[in-house]
């Protein structure tokens, strides 16, 4: 009975999803156009346009990276409430950066070409993340609560370790690290942006290619194994993608955490994507998540920056709303 019902609605549902993705794309295009051309004066057009384009690019790349990395991470953990940020991914990045300053000294750190540094960080970050979170999540998460708690605590530990290292070098160099570890969309480097965008696109491409297997991975380890998925390898590949995306986003704009507590942006995105797409299929979920995230970031940033004149407030508002959303999910019993 239920099966036939499902079957009967399958066709219209498919069309509905296409329409939803289309609507989100149109909205994003409109928002982007507004972002670029709103209030453009007579003088210095080219300069302002370029400035705005770079920032728009950063917003889009970050939105895509956060959305996809969160979706993938939830798939690996077979859990709807984990985000890479909750699990300490961006703290790991801050620690890595601090460790590099500590190891090379400020002068040495500054002497490395931007691009080399970026790529080296990516490689290191992927390796560390796969090692750490692979062990944590690889055997399937029987005690999901303990896994989340471990991630949160690891996040605090990484941040404290970074703080400790930073203080051990002199206050002078501490300032360098501090600047490198707060979020700002204006910091995006026009040279790194195309590379970051390319890497993000490539990672998303791989994720879409893997989509059928991700659908199975999301069922949890036991089911996935019994359905014949090579679970261990899939976990490593997915985590590497997550690490790559988080590193790109963080390298471009800094870690998406405010005041030491995890940011819940990814959580909101994933929750909305599930709610809107009403599908478990990654070939629908991933594009939906990317579009939702891009819309929220572009429109949100526009409202806060141009309407309210508050640059930094967006991250706080996201944290507030995301936290409330998390509590709502928790009390609804959707988190297990």
């Amino acid at each position: 009975m239920a099966d036939t019902a499902l079957h009967l609605t399958a066709m219209p549902a498919g069309r509905r999803k296409t329409r939803m993705l289309l609507a989100l794309s149109v909205l994003l295009a409109a928002a982007s156009a507004l972002w670029l051309f709103q209030g453009l004066g007579e003088g210095n057009r080219a300069f302002i346009l370029q400035l705005r384009a770079v920032k728009l690019g950063a917003l889009l790349v970050v939105a895509a990276a956060v959305a996809v990395s969160t979706m993938l991470f939830q798939t690996v953990a077979a859990n709807r409430v984990l985000t890479p940020s909750i699990m300490g991914f961006d703290s790991l990045y801050v620690l890595l950066q601090t460790a590099m300053v500590a190891g090379l000294g400020v002068a040495g750190f500054a002497a490395i070409p931007q691009l080399t540094k970026f790529l080296a960080e990516l490689v290191l970050m992927c390796g560390l993340a796969v090692l750490l979170f692979g062990t944590l999540l690889g055997r399937g998460t029987r005690d999901i609560g303990r896994t989340i708690l471990t991630g949160v605590i690891l996040g605090i530990m990484f941040r404290s370790a970074a703080g400790l290292l930073a203080r051990l070098i002199d206050p002078n160099e501490y300032a360098v690290v501090q600047a490198a570890s707060t979020v700002s969309f204006t910091r995006a480097d026009p040279v790194l942006l195309p590379i970051g965008a390319g890497l993000t696109a490539a990672a998303i491409g791989v994720a879409l290619w893997l989509a059928p297997r991700l659908d199975v991975l999301a069922l949890g380890r036991d089911t996935a194994v019994s359905l014949g998925l090579r679970h261990g390898r899939m976990v490593v590949v997915t985590l590497a993608l997550v690490a790559l995306l988080v590193s790109v986003a963080t390298a471009l704009v800094g870690p998406l955490s405010v005041f030491g507590s995890p940011a819940f942006f990814g959580l909101v995105i994933a929750g909305l994507a599930h709610a809107l797409a009403r599908s478990h299929r990654h070939d629908v979920l991933l594009p939906a998540a990317v579009l939702i995230a891009a819309n929220i970031l572009v429109i949100g940033q526009m409202v806060f920056e141009r309407l309210l004149g508050q640059q930094a407030a967006l991250s706080v508002v996201i944290e507030f709303a995301g936290g409330l959303f998390f509590l709502y999910l928790l009390l609804k019993g959707r988190i297990r």
């Binding site: 944290e319 507030f320 998390f326 509590l327």
Partner: peptide, 9 residues
Amino acid sequence: IVLAGVIGS
């Protein structure tokens, strides 16, 4: 932790 984050924000 989440509640602390919300109040903190």
